[in-house]
């Protein structure tokens, strides 16, 4: 075999392997301590069955978060509204009206209407925010203490596709709890 080729190949292969290892290591460590770095699509929010634009609803229409996420101040979950609730505004006759203008919007709204047929298939929204395992998070007390939604969820109004902006690892939670004098007993969240 050509020894010159080997002399070139070994360092090249070695260097690229090293590079890969370094990349992977960096990736794993940052995923471990925080969130995966925004490469390979990791920083993006998941695609949703209906391309719901928070930009239109929050920034343009100026809706308050709690207009749709109604139980956030009283319950564990903020809850994704039921389809019926979408139709408070998007009534059947309004589909072609002023609430939706572009072609894509009409396509997406058609999906919404299709869900009202028989059988009533639910919309399987994809989860955006994930907490580590064995953690219970309750929205209500946070909202009641005056923490704004954007503290954890970022400027949702500017997001075409919603993504997780804060890592919400335990350090993140505990730091905030300490700063605000909130309880830090393990069993407040872990049960």
């Amino acid at each position: 075999m050509n020894s010159r080729l080997i002399k070139i190949a070994v360092p090249v292969v070695g260097a690229s392997v090293l590079l890969v290892v370094a990349f992977v290591g960096w990736f794993v460590l940052s995923a471990w301590w925080s969130n995966p770095p925004p490469v390979l699509g990791f920083g993006e929010g998941p695609e949703q069955p209906i391309a719901f634009p928070h930009t239109v609803h929050v920034s343009d229409a100026g809706l308050d978060c709690q207009f749709c996420h109604r139980t956030v101040s009283t319950d564990e979950a903020a809850t994704i509204p039921a389809v019926a609730q979408c139709l408070f505004c998007h009534g059947f006759d309004k589909i072609d009206g002023r609430l939706s203008t572009s072609g894509t919007a009409q396509e997406e709204l058609a999906k919404l209407i299709a869900d009202l047929g028989e059988p009533q298939e639910p919309i399987n929204w994809n989860r955006v925010y994930r907490l580590p395992d064995h953690v219970q998070f309750v929205h209500a007390p946070h909202i009641q203490q005056g923490i704004s939604c954007s503290t954890c969820h970022g400027e949702i109004g500017t997001m075409q596709v919603v993504k997780q902006v804060r890592n919400l690892k335990m350090r993140d939670c505990v730091d905030c709890h300490r700063d605000n004098g909130a309880p830090t007993d393990c069993s407040i969240c872990h049960y």
């Binding site: 580590p132 395992d133 064995h134 393990c186 069993s187 872990h190």
Partner: peptide, 14 residues
């Protein structure tokens, strides 16, 4: 596992 101030013996799964 530890004791909290409500008299509960707590198990932290994590």
């Amino acid at each position: 596992t530890y004791h909290n101030n409500e008299g509960l013996n707590v198990q932290v799964y994590n």
